[in-house]
Amino acid sequence: MKNNKNLTYMDSVHRDGTIWNISMMILLILFPVAVCLIFSAAPDWEGVGLGLVATAPMYWAVGIVEVITFIPMLGAGGSYLSFVTGNISNLKLPCAINALENAKVDAKSEEGEIVSTIAISVSSIVTIVIIALGVLLIIPLQPLLESPVLKPAFDQMLPALFGALGVALISKNWKIAIAPIALMLVLFVFVPALNSGSVGIMVPVGVVFTILVSRILYKKGII
């Protein structure tokens, strides 16, 4: 058995990440328990059951696919943190990708692991601080943030983000990018069931399809 001194950096990231995530899970579960105890109230178990049946299967399935899809992109430290702090595909992952691109490091190297974890940690801290400030200043901020003038800007945050991020990545990997972008365009334009709420589900589809296309191109010596 390895003692602490013999642990590699990556081993220690996994050990610490495991301790943090399990602790966070327990803390999160304790919130409703504490509310029950403090206010002497019991949950409506039928409501819990029906609510879980309607919600959990889809989000658990998506969650499993997201874990498999995102771990190689986020790195170890980034994964432990991102799956606690959330907002992965719209914030943490673009932040990590941008940091890796700017630092010009390989995502799979230890340098990549460090840069990615730092970017995600900073992003999490800034998000927590801004949300806390928003909660503290909710009364004066509400009219400003919900104003009809600013609404279109925040409605279009994801197109702006992925326009800027996408052009850099796609230009470097255009041979890989053609087929998945064509597929996604066709699906999103011509399948009415796919709307803005479907993007989370379509990310794993896009990833699997891109890997398959890349494998074929690689085997044929095109990339």
Binding site: S89, I97, I170, P180, M184, T210, V213
Partner: peptide, 17 residues
Amino acid sequence: NSLFIGMISAFVGFVFC
């Protein structure tokens, strides 16, 4: 790179929905 492009492609598609 395919992982990153796969994710980006889904969001590019979503922009056209």
